[in-house]
């Protein structure tokens, strides 16, 4: 008898729950995101849509989503290694553990490659240049890594290093509000600011 009472209570309570869930789904799952969408699209249109950057009317990327900047002439600033090869629909870190031999050899290989193409000592290469980001879409590099790439980009474009150095400095953001996070350079914006050859 007691068990019967409990189970009928359970069914009745579950029905109440189902009705409430339907209402909640309408309010929290439809009205709420739609309201946030409406206000965002009106007040922060560009940000709500991912800060798409266009050149000559053509969309070339999002300010917040990194890209693979490897080209034949190697005349662009490179972003960080990406575990998802900058696939916009496959954000991911490498998830390699801190003593995993695969990670250690990947870091060594990246160091050797960068040392060769940039003509620098391995000791001068900053950590962000040889490690994959958390998102696989990191739009930023450290100012150190940007400066390290200046001679190569200048040479590939037939420009003085001074001119490129100034561009890097102009595109370096300090800590947010003066104290939050790390200084950074947006690689897409820096590359788009490079003068044509």
């Amino acid at each position: 008898m007691n068990r019967l009472h409990l189970s009928s209570g359970f069914v009745r309570q579950s029905l109440v729950g189902l009705k409430l869930l339907v209402v909640m789904t309408v309010v929290l799952g439809v009205v709420y995101p739609a309201a946030v969408w409406g206000i965002s699209q009106t007040a922060f249109h560009e940000k709500a849509n991912g800060q798409i950057v266009s050149v000559d009317g053509k969309d070339v990327g999002s300010k917040l989503i990194g890209q693979n900047f490897a080209t034949k002439d190697d005349d662009l600033f490179h972003g960080r290694p990406s575990a998802g090869d900058y696939d916009g629909l496959a954000s991911a870190p490498s998830n390699l553990g801190p003593s995993n031999p695969d990670l250690l050899s990947a870091i060594k290989k990246r160091q050797a490659t960068i040392a060769a193409i940039e003509g620098v000592d391995v000791a001068d290469i900053p950590a962000d240049a040889v490690t994959a980001s958390g998102s696989g879409l990191d739009p930023y590099i450290s100012p150190e890594y940007a400066r390290l790439q200046v001679p190569r980009v200048a040479k590939a474009r037939g420009l003085t290093t001074g001119a490129i150095e100034k561009l890097v400095a102009d595109h370096t953001d300090g800590r947010q509000l003066g104290f939050l996070g790390e200084p950074k350079v947006n690689v897409l914006e820096l590359n788009l600011a490079l003068p044509d050859r």
Partner: peptide, 23 residues
């Protein structure tokens, strides 16, 4: 860590702008 000592910082899996502290 081994990887961090080799790379010069524990930045594997971390975003540039957040760095080690905020992560």
């Amino acid at each position: 860590s081994q990887a961090a000592r080799l790379a010069g910082g524990a930045m594997e899996g971390k975003e540039t702008q957040l760095g080690t502290w905020a992560s």
